[in-house]
Design a binder for these strands. Structure first.
Lengths: 147, 147
DNA sequence: GATAATCTTGATAAAGATTATCAATTTCAA
DNA sequence: TTGAAATTGATAATCTTTATCAAGATTATC
């Protein structure tokens, strides 16, 4: 069994909750999918595999994966929540192309440490942060000039 | 007339669009309101002043103010868009208390310059960015310890 | 294995924020 | 003053996400 399935199982046990075929299947497909997936995109994948699974279950399972630490939510500016694998990935921020929607994961230690300083400066106990950089990627800039 | 009203008027003329009492009134109340306002919060203010104005007009006017540069949208993680004055304010990011919702405007030049470096590093033409730091403010930390 | 308590599921309704529609009204250039 | 064009208010529609609930699945215990 993939280690992620084990993590989910452990989490369920620790919370006195139950395993289900649907959860196993949704996690499996989630792991196979590209990163930065919307709930609806995952639902479409799930439908192809097993049309009996409803989208409420997909939503619920994504929430569950987030609780268990396997997944994190990520809200861009279009109001649609995206989900990305968390396990085995370091913290990172996002660089987003506003033309094609491409998402690049980035991290800059100087920025990270200065964020910590801002929390301290204003007397906040730090919890988390989000940073998104919006621009036009190289390919789309080329496209603009060409076409 | 407040300079903001002039700016709106200029913008409307430049786009061959029309002035209206509603727009003037909504802008006036928007300027009086606290920063980081939701459309609904502004609508409530507008209702007190003039119950004849519908909320669709408030939404439309906020969009218009954003177009004209008087206002900018700001999306936190609760899915509700907030609007803040833009004119006369420098770029800034937000430090948000997850307990009481307090929002502090912050800016760090080192972070700003490193963001520029990230755009460059990945070959993106920069457009804008957003950064939100979530934590617990001093007052709420005290509250937690006390009660 | 059978059982019973409890959890999960799928379908659907509901919620909440925002946008679209459209007839009636208002604005403004001529 | 006038008439084309924009704006308004009410309402419906949209879109994402969450709540509800009866029916079915799971698991600890015997």
């Amino acid at each position: 069994m993939a280690s992620e399935q084990k993590i989910l199982l452990e989490y369920l046990k620790s919370k006195n909750r139950k395993q289900s075929k649907q959860r196993t299947e949704i996690l499996e497909l989630f792991l196979k999918s590209p990163r930065h997936l919307t709930a609806n995109e995952l639902y479409i994948q799930v439908q192809k595999h097993n049309p009996a699974i409803g989208f409420a279950t997909v939503y619920r399972t994504l929430k569950l994966l987030c609780e268990s630490g396997l997944c994190r939510e990520m809200a861009l500016e279009d109001g649609v929540t995206r989900y990305e694998r968390q396990q085995g990935y370091e913290h990172h921020d996002h660089l987003v192309c506003t033309k094609c929607g491409k998402v690049v994961e980035v991290v800059d230690q100087t920025i990270e440490s200065h964020q910590g300083r801002l929390f301290k400066k204003y007397g906040f106990h730090p919890q988390r942060h989000r940073m998104e950089l919006y621009g036009i990627c190289k390919d789309c800039v080329k496209g603009e000039k060409a076409g």
